[in-house]
C-alpha cells in the first residue's frame, strides 16, 4: 500500500516522527496493517473581503499596490482592512506603494500544500514594502535558500498582463533585488 501522503510533496521528516507500534489484528499478519490515513477536512465559504480589500484587489488587477493611511499617525497599512488597528478609526486616504520592499521575516516550507505552491523546499516570506507600516505575505524565489536573509531587498514578479485579476495571485512571487541590505533594526515594529 503506498503511503497515505503519496499525492503530495513532503521532504523527509526527522527519523522516528512517524514511527509507531504495529497494529495487531487477531489472526492476521501485521505487516500490511493500516498505519496512516488521510482525513481531509474542508469548509466552503462564500468570501467577501469588504470595501478596503476590494479596493486593494482591484488595484492589483491594474498592477498597482494600494495601501491606506492611518488618519492619526500616518502609518500605511497594506493590505488595507479599512481601519487603523492602532487608533481604531477608518482609513480614508489611499496610498500607492511601489512593488519593491525588504524581507522582514521568512521561513523555509518543507511540506507542500495548496494548488499553486512551488516545489518544496521553498521560502515563504514577509515583505515590508517601501513606505508601508506592515509586511505583506508572499513567496520568495530565484535565490538559493541558504542565501535568504532578513533585510534583503526584493521585488514583485507579476503574472503576465493578460492574466492580471483582482486577486492576490496577480503577484506570482518575489525575487531578490540587487541593492544593499537594510539593517534589521530598521525593520523593528514592522513585522
Amino acid at each position: 500500500m503506498p503511503p497515505a501522503d503519496a499525492d503530495r510533496t513532503v521532504t523527509p521528516f526527522p527519523v522516528g516522527l512517524w514511527e509507531q507500534p504495529q497494529p495487531s489484528v487477531p489472526g492476521e499478519a501485521a505487516d500490511d496493517a493500516v498505519q496512516r490515513i488521510r482525513v481531509p477536512a474542508s469548509i466552503t465559504y462564500r468570501y467577501t473581503p469588504g470595501a478596503a480589500p476590494t479596493r486593494f484587489l482591484r488595484g492589483l488587477a491594474g498592477k498597482r499596490i494600494l495601501g491606506e493611511k492611518d488618519p492619526v499617525n500616518g502609518d500605511v497599512y497594506v493590505p488595507p482592512r479599512g481601519m487603523s488597528p492602532i487608533v481604531g478609526l477608518p482609513t480614508t486616504e489611499q496610498v500607492e506603494l511601489p512593488d519593491r520592499g525588504t524581507l522582514s521575516a521568512f521561513c523555509v516550507v518543507h511540506i507542500g500544500f495548496g494548488v499553486n505552491a512551488p516545489p518544496t523546499p521553498f521560502v515563504s516570506a514577509l515583505v515590508l514594502l517601501d513606505g508601508a507600516a506592515v509586511s505583506l505575505y508572499g513567496t520568495l524565489l530565484e535565490i538559493p535558500i541558504e542565501e535568504v536573509r532578513i533585510g534583503m531587498r526584493v521585488q514583485a514578479v507579476w503574472v503576465d498582463d493578460d492574466q492580471l485579476e483582482p486577486s492576490f495571485e496577480s503577484i506570482r512571487y518575489w525575487k531578490p533585488l540587487d541593492e544593499p541590505d537594510v539593517a534589521a533594526e530598521l525593520l523593528k515594529g514592522h513585522m
Binding site: T44, Y45, Y47
Partner: peptide
C-alpha cells in the same frame, strides 16, 4: 464588493 468562493481545507494525514 468582490466575492469569491473560499475553501478552507486541512489535508490531515493521521497516524492511526
Amino acid at each position: 464588493i468582490l466575492e469569491a468562493p473560499l475553501v478552507i481545507e486541512y489535508p490531515f494525514n493521521r497516524t492511526t
